[in-house]
């Protein structure tokens, strides 16, 4: 079986996996990181969104072996001890969830947007969420949470080093 070595939430990880093992299976089944969810398993719902080398991807549509030598961040890698990441805090504050199933993917996707387009307005947030489906909230509070989360990330960010120090980048 192929051996894959990568970094997950800042820690070096090696695992023996089958060629067909998906990244999300490696995360959930080998590493026990079950915060990353599998919703549709067809690259549409985005519940499995994680960061690979700083960009959001669907971990159900990537082989574990493709992540070799990459830095992966999952929802478990965001909080600083008991202190939530500003985007997580914004989702809590604005009640950007109901059942919570899509939330890990929403948060990971939102942080990618915040980093790459911190000026995003409501329309851009809604467009960005094309790849994240929520079947409960109707998105309204999710969008509110993301707009607030982006502001909070900007506000909290000592220029140029925040992402890394919070363990959300690579």
């Amino acid at each position: 079986m192929p051996r894959v070595a990568l970094t997950v939430n800042g820690k070096a990880v090696t695992a023996e996996v089958e060629g067909r093992t998906l990244l999300v299976q490696l995360l959930r089944e080998n590493l026990g990181l079950t915060g990353t969810h599998v919703g549709c398993d067809t690259s549409q719902c985005g519940a499995c969104t994680v960061h690979v080398n700083g960009r959001s991807v669907k971990s159900c549509t990537m082989l574990a072996v493709q992540a070799a030598s990459s830095a992966v961040t999952t929802i478990e890698g965001l909080a600083n001890g008991t202190e939530l990441h500003p985007m997580q805090e914004a989702f809590r504050e604005h009640h950007g969830l109901q059942c919570g199933f899509c939330t890990p993917g929403m948060v990971m996707s939102a942080i990618d947007l915040a980093r790459h387009n911190p000026e995003a307005d409501e329309t851009q947030v809604r467009e960005w969420l094309e790849g994240n489906l929520c079947r409960c909230t109707g998105y309204h509070n999710i969008v509110k949470a993301i707009l607030a989360g982006i502001k909070a990330m900007l506000g909290n960010a000592p220029r140029g080093k925040s992402a890394k120090s919070r363990g959300t980048s690579s």
Binding site: R55, K58, D112, E130, G131
Partner: peptide, 9 residues
């Protein structure tokens, strides 16, 4: 094309 996550890969 697709959505942001698809476009990243």
């Amino acid at each position: 094309i697709g959505d942001p996550q698809v476009r990243h890969r």
